[in-house]
Structure formats: C-alpha cells, structure tokens
C-alpha cells in the first residue's frame, strides 16, 4: 500500500522549492537575458546559510556549547532534536530569521557577482556562474564547521514540534507554497510593468537598450539581487525540509534540472516555468517509488533520469526553440490601446 497523502505532500514540497528556482530562472535568464548556469550556487548558499543559522544559532541561544557539541556531531544532533520538539517559538523565530538572512545575503552575493560579468557576452556570463557553483562546492568540502564532505544533519524542520509528521509536513508545505506564490506574483507583476518591457528589450538587444537610456548593468544587477535572493530562500526551505546539507546535493546537475523545467514550460513565462517544475518533479518523485526496477535493470536507475531529461530538453529545443508556451503582451496595455484606437477612428 503506497501512502498517497505522504507522496503528495512530498512531491508538492519538492515542486514548490523547485518552482521558486524555475520562476526566478525564467525571470533572470528567459526575460532579462542573464544566462545563469550557476543557479545551484545561490540555491546551495541559501541552503548552507539556513543550515548554519538553524543549528548553530539555535544551539547557542539554548545555551549548548557549540564548540563542544557542534551540530555535525552526534551530540549536537541529539541536542537539536530535543530543542526543536520542546521550544516551538524559538524554532519558528530562528527559522524566520534564517529565511530573511538567506534572502539578503544570497541577494547581495548575486548583486556583487554581477560586477565582473555584466559587460561580457552571455557565454562568458554562463561559464563564470557555472564556476561559482563549483567553487562554492569546493569551499563547503574544505570547511570543517559545516561538516566538510559529510555535511550537516539534524537541521530542525520548523513544525516538527506538532508531533504528527503528516501535520508538520502539511504546515511546511503551506509555508513553501506561500513563498512560491509571493515569488510568482512579484515576477508576474514585473513582467506586466514597464520594467518587464525594459527587461525584454535588454534581452533582445542590450546595446540598443543602452543607447535608449537604459542603465543595462544596473537594471540587471537589481534583478539579479531579487532572483538570487529568492533562490537563497528556496535553498533554506530545502535544507530544513530534508534536514541535512552536504556538498554532493549542490552539483551542476541541479542547475541543469531547473533549466530543463523552464525550457519545457517556455522560458519566457513564469506559468510555463511552474508547469515545467510540476512535470519534472513528478518524474523525479515517481522514480524512487519504482526503485524495485533496480532488480531488473543492470544499472542504477538514477543515471537514467539525467539522460531522459536531457533528451526531452534537446528535442524540445530543436523543435520549439521558444518553448511550448510563449509570452503574450500584457493584457491591460492591449485593452487600453484598443480603446484609444476606437476613440481615434
């Protein structure tokens, strides 16, 4: 008997987290023209920030000596479980703080990164950001206080004190979906506004946009602050959901997955990104369910997924380079203009 509710919560949780990444990627890459091949860098940074704040700060406030019982050791994890079940207000407070901090820190990190890359062509931008992801991973491996290669365990899920796993999962899902909705609304509003128009003009021809008075680097940096910030929040949500972080979770394959989502859905529309995230996370979540396949296959089914996703992505790109769902001009401008045309004629 498969636990359907559990599966649904799990799938939708992954969907919400990845959809935040996909929507922001479609805003920065599909609409503003920043080729972000280092999405995982911001996701991972947010996750590590969330992990550090939700463990070290929580332990420190509760009076545990973090030098003696750091959170990557067994004593630290046991202390964390105790605190997180006994002190709901503290856990929630620290969690909220971690969301805010990771938004700001990741956003500023993205903003600073735009300084070297904003003048060069998209290939260089993509490559540099790809490197950032790999460099950060190298740093996590070498940092002792985040557990090095083994990473950290026992990051408290902020609703764990509810006692019933289903209920706390549901609460966390609601929270994640709220943040996704916020991301979506912001992206959609930006798209329909004069800023969205400017962004699309920059993506089409950044030199012409510069000559039309748009401060291209500044606008791109601001957008990158916003999207990086939301990616960081997605990272924190992820770290607290799976209760652990380690360097192997933040490989370039994650970036590639998010790109596949926005390509399948159509890179110019946030709705498309959400649909893409829905489909791909479903595929990803169903695969462990049919893990019994393992007995019949002579190789690990995990390896099939990237091949499969890569094939879909390549075929979609060759057949429909603009994605399956294309962007339409904002509605209200059209209606306002039609009204004026009627008046004129």
């Amino acid at each position: 008997m498969i636990d359907i509710t559990g599966f649904l919560i799990n799938w939708l949780e992954y969907f919400a987290i990845y959809a935040i990444l996909a929507v922001t990627l479609s805003l920065e890459s599909g609409i503003s023209g920043i080729t972000n091949f280092g999405k995982v860098a911001f996701f991972g940074l947010g996750a590590y920030l969330g992990a550090i704040i939700n463990t070290y700060l929580l332990l420190a406030i509760s009076g545990v000596d973090v030098v003696k019982a750091p959170p990557y050791t067994a004593e630290g994890v046991i202390a964390l479980i105790e605190i997180s079940t006994l002190n709901p207000a503290l856990v929630l407070g620290v969690f909220t703080l971690s969301i805010l901090v990771s938004f700001i820190v990741t956003g500023v990190f993205g903003y600073l990164l735009t300084y070297p890359i904003i003048r060069v062509g998209s290939g260089f931008v993509g490559f540099t950001l790809l490197c950032v992801g790999e460099v950060l991973r190298g740093i996590y491996v070498n940092m002792e206080f985040v557990g090095g290669t083994n990473g950290m365990l026992g990051i408290p899920q902020p609703f764990i004190w509810l006692g019933i796993p289903m209920l706390s999962g549901l609460c966390y899902l609601l929270l994640s979906v709220t943040i996704l909705a916020l991301t979506y609304i912001v992206t959609d509003r930006i798209l329909g506004s004069p800023l969205g128009r400017t962004l699309r003009s920059i993506r089409d021809d950044d030199i012409a946009a510069l000559c039309l008075g748009k401060d291209v680097p500044k606008i791109k940096s601001k957008i990158f602050f916003l999207t990086s910030g939301f990616s960081g929040v997605a990272g924190t949500l992820y770290a607290c959901y799976v209760s652990s972080v380690n360097p192997q979770m933040f490989v370039t394959l994650v970036t590639f997955n998010v790109w596949a989502m926005i390509i399948i859905g159509g890179s110019e529309s946030p709705i498309g990104a959400i649909i893409g995230a829905l489909i791909l996370t479903l595929i990803e979540r169903i695969l462990p369910l049919i893990a019994s396949l393992n007995e019949y296959l002579p190789f690990t089914p995990d390896y099939l997924r990237p091949v499969f996703i890569g094939l879909i992505m390549t075929i979609v790109l060759i057949k429909y380079p603009r994605g399956l769902i294309s962007m339409k001009p904002p509605k209200f401008i059209k209606s306002a203009v039609e009204e004026l045309i009627r008046e004129a004629s």
Binding site: F37, L253, F256, P306, V307, I309, G310, M313, T314, I318
Partner: peptide, 8 residues
C-alpha cells in the same frame, strides 16, 4: 542545448 548534451 550543449549543456543538455553534456549531461546525456
């Protein structure tokens, strides 16, 4: 697309 090819 080339990134897709890479992973395939």
């Amino acid at each position: 697309t080339s990134m897709g090819l890479w992973f395939i």
